[in-house]
Write a protein that binds this DNA or RNA. Sequence first.
DNA 1: TCATTACCCTACGCTAGCGTATGGTGTCTC
DNA 2: GAGACACCATACGCTAGCGTAGGGTAATGA
Lengths: 192, 192
Amino acid sequence: MTQERRLTAEDWAEAALEALGEGGLSAIAVEPLAARLGVTKGSFYWHFANREALVAAALALWEQRSTEAKIASLNAEPDPVARIRLLFSQAIELAGRDSAEINLRAASDNPLVQPLLRRVIQRRLWYTIDLFEQIGFSREEAIRRGAMAFTAYGGQSEITARFPGIMPIDEGGGIGAYVDSVLEVLLSGRPG
Amino acid sequence: MTQERRLTAEDWAEAALEALGEGGLSAIAVEPLAARLGVTKGSFYWHFANREALVAAALALWEQRSTEAKIASLNAEPDPVARIRLLFSQAIELAGRDSAEINLRAASDNPLVQPLLRRVIQRRLWYTIDLFEQIGFSREEAIRRGAMAFTAYGGQSEITARFPGIMPIDEGGGIGAYVDSVLEVLLSGRPG
DNA sequence: TCATTACCCTACGCTAGCGTATGGTGTCTC
DNA sequence: GAGACACCATACGCTAGCGTAGGGTAATGA
């Protein structure tokens, strides 16, 4: 964290991403980050033109890593049904793993964040829809169920992250059982 | 809006709530609001101790009105299934009706907003769960389905509000058809 | 070894917003 | 009609954060 050697633009972007996870978008601030890196903002303005450029760098870093991570963990699972289950499980425990995403959602009005989230949502939504189509639902039905699944685990992860303990999913079997019951409902009337 | 007469604390709270709906929590700022009300902040600090008090007043105003409105519109419908349908329909078109709520969710880390939203979520969640119990599901199953319904329409309203046009629910029948299909899934295997 | 380059510091100006002190004015009351 | 009170203006100090100017230093390559 606090380095002895001199810094690069990547060091700054890394620190910015970390700050985003801890304090939200507004925590990506030049002077506080400089202090944290044991340096003055004179350093920053050598590597970046302005704060916006730093925010953009941190967002790019996040997008790359988050998509890589999700794709990697999901591609390991060949069965579509198991993939959906994985999607859900991951989303529910997303709070601890990726607090940057939670904080990004809260800043979705920001002109840099808005298009980024739009891309990410689009990808995930249609990925989910595709899964339901692979399972055997018609395209129209897959769109409906996929959209429902996506909003459900989006809302779920948001709420559990921001209001821990408020969802009564710990009763009777824990998270796994809840995920199973959700899937049972989402897959009801499954053809094939 | 811009008044000729002198102001009361309620006028300030009202303007603050309006600003919250338009620009988020940070838009509840003393000097901009004063300018908007055609007055200086000397007026404000006569009515309130500080900014936090104004935020609290605006939040109280919102909580009171939003719960009143929702309860009124839902109590008019006696059938539980129709009520759930109403809940969903309302949530989806929530963006235009209550942008203050959307902006509040984005500020849920704020120490004044956090407990407020926690209360509201708690109320709505268990209200939804009760509906599923009234329909005939067991308590355990009602908790699962209610939680799922709640997160689904929470996520739905958030996404449609922040990223209009991104959800493919307008295809083939519009919102009403989508709500119906969601309900069909959520009520699958319904006893009684 | 010496100049160049990469990186950083110090010091400054600027803005938005919070909060305070104090004085002014219209309206109500006796 | 004279005070009292409610409401507001003016003017100030303060903080956090952005951005700039210009000088300094350590390492590196010729």
